[in-house]
Amino acid sequence: MNIDPAVVKAFAPTGVLRASINLGNPILANRDSATGEPFGVSVDLARDFAAYLGLPLELVVFDAAGKSVEAVSDERADFGFFAVDPKRGETIAFTAPYVLIEGFYLVREDSPVRTNADVDTANHRVAVGKGSAYDLFLTRELKAAQIVRAPTSPAVVQTFIEQGLEVAAGVKQQLQADASKVGGLRLLDQRFMVIRQAMGVARSRGEQAAAVLADFVEQKKASGFVGDALARHGIEGASVAPAA
């Protein structure tokens, strides 16, 4: 693949392509307990995109989505993997999504909350991961309930338990895994949002760079790369997004 050298330079002005990796979403990235190395669907895509541009890759790893977004917006990293959100879109040019992930609410077994509509009342406090897609979405959508921000998405259930909150919000799989360890908790029956997980580059890098990244994502969906990566890493509850 011949990529315009100007686009390659736009993506990697330092000569090394720096990928912002968020470990706060375990569906897409984790750290190997033995080696400490990041792995997952987003890491696979990052490596493949570096090869696509013919560049060496550096993984810049964060524990929360907000930090990952800031790194790309501030050009401390060259591209990243984010849930599409209009607030983030002020500084990030998103591709079409490559993966769709469901967001759910978690409550205690004896909670009177039975449906998503029951959540938004003045006496409810909802735990979310600070700066996560759920935080951004629920900050706009909830009118009466109070949002309580855990430092990271994986810390949501811990915050929910320790502070005696009424509701936790997050990735379905993460909530299920945490609930199985704690006991006495249940997910509501319906998702409250679908997260459109995309790749993104700072708008300051130019429209041509954004177009190249968007085309790369479409190729990876169409070729089966994304679906194969989900299967290889044993990811359930996430699906390959349709073609743009």
Rank of each mutant, 00 (worst) to 15 (best):
Y98Q: 05
A198T: 12
A77S: 12
V69L: 14
L28T: 15
T95C: 07
F62V: 02
A243T: 15
G66E: 11
L23T: 01
V8W: 09
K130H: 06
D189M: 10
V148R: 00
L230N: 04
F137G: 09
K143W: 00
A96G: 12
E236D: 11
P97M: 06
G129D: 11
E218W: 10
N25G: 08
V8R: 15
F104D: 05
F79I: 03
A34V: 10
T159I: 12
A168W: 00
L55N: 05
P97I: 02
I21V: 12
A6I: 09
A222G: 09
L142Q: 00
V113D: 01
R76V: 05
R76T: 05
R140F: 06
V8E: 11
L230R: 08
L138E: 00
E90R: 12
L55R: 04
Q190L: 09
E70R: 15
N116H: 11
A198Q: 14
L17T: 07
L138T: 00
S111R: 03
E236P: 07
F225A: 14
L57V: 05
V126G: 08
Q208M: 05
L136A: 09
A177H: 13
M199D: 10
R149T: 01
R76C: 06
D110T: 04
S42R: 07
G54H: 03
E75N: 15
K220P: 07
P112G: 07
P26A: 10
A209T: 03
D74N: 15
Q158C: 09
A209R: 04
D78W: 13
A241L: 02
Q208C: 03
S73W: 10
D118P: 04
D32M: 05
A77F: 08
F192R: 01
V113M: 02
G184W: 08
E207Q: 12
V99Q: 05
Y52K: 14
K221E: 02
P242D: 12
D74C: 14
E207N: 10
E109C: 05
F39Y: 04
P26I: 06
V84E: 14
Q174I: 11
A50W: 00
L175M: 07
A168G: 01
L23W: 02
G184S: 08
Y98V: 07
A229E: 08
N22Q: 13
S20K: 03
S223F: 12
D85M: 03
A117D: 13
A168N: 00
L175P: 02
A241W: 00
G164M: 06
H124W: 00
L165Q: 01
T115V: 10
L53M: 03
A145Q: 01
K130P: 01
A244K: 14
L175N: 04
R108D: 11
V156M: 13
P97D: 11
K221P: 01
G103W: 08
D63C: 07
P56N: 10
A77E: 07
T14N: 03
P38W: 02
D228T: 13
P151V: 07
R114F: 06
I27E: 14
K130I: 01
V61T: 14
A231S: 13
A209P: 05
G224S: 13
N22S: 14
K9W: 13
T152D: 06
Q146F: 00
L45W: 06
R47I: 09
V8G: 11
